[in-house]
Amino acid sequence: MIRHTVVFTLRHAEGSLKEKSFLRDAQVLGDIPGVSGFEQFRQVNPRTDYRFGFSMEFADRAAYEGYNAHPRHLSFVRERWAHEVERFMEIDTEPV
């Protein structure tokens, strides 16, 4: 199992329609074959300035790589993520 987590800050004003649109439209990522447990979350830790996060799981490396190469993922990254995300950090983990 691989867990993919990304935390990020959008360029949009907090609570704006553009922010809500981005989060709503990002839900398509959870429908990509191989993705399970897709979640969106809002940061509550005052010691970090990342505002949101996504988390999802993959059964194995093949599912993870399939997601990364999937046209829906590539399109979202190209058309939305690259223009609307100010900064981010991602981490991909597997159980030890």
Rank of each mutant, 00 (worst) to 15 (best):
R61S: 09
P33I: 01
R42D: 09
G30Y: 02
A62H: 13
R72P: 04
A69R: 14
D49N: 14
G37S: 14
P33A: 00
S75T: 14
Y64D: 02
N68P: 03
H73F: 04
T48I: 07
E65Q: 15
G66I: 13
F54E: 05
Y64R: 05
A69L: 13
A62C: 10
D31P: 03
E39N: 09
G66R: 07
P71G: 02
Q40D: 04
E65I: 13
S75C: 09
T48P: 05
A63N: 11
F54A: 01
H70K: 07
H73W: 04
L29V: 01
P33T: 00
A63I: 14
E65A: 09
N45H: 08
R47F: 15
V44S: 10
R42K: 10
Q43S: 08
D31Q: 10
A69N: 13
G53C: 00
P33K: 01
M56H: 06
Q40W: 12
L74S: 09
G37K: 04
G37Q: 13
A69V: 05
A62Q: 15
V44H: 07
R72I: 07
R47N: 15
Y67F: 08
S36P: 09
V35P: 05
H70Q: 07
G53W: 04
L29H: 03
L74Y: 04
G30M: 03
R42A: 06
Q43M: 09
R51K: 07
L74F: 05
Q43P: 06
A59D: 15
Y50A: 00
Y67S: 02
G30F: 02
M56T: 11
Q40L: 15
H70A: 04
N45A: 09
D60T: 11
D49P: 09
D60Q: 12
N68C: 12
G34W: 05
Y67C: 02
I32C: 02
G37P: 10
F58D: 03
S75H: 12
Y50P: 00
R51A: 03
S36I: 05
Y64L: 08
L29N: 05
I32W: 06
F52R: 02
E39D: 10
G53S: 00
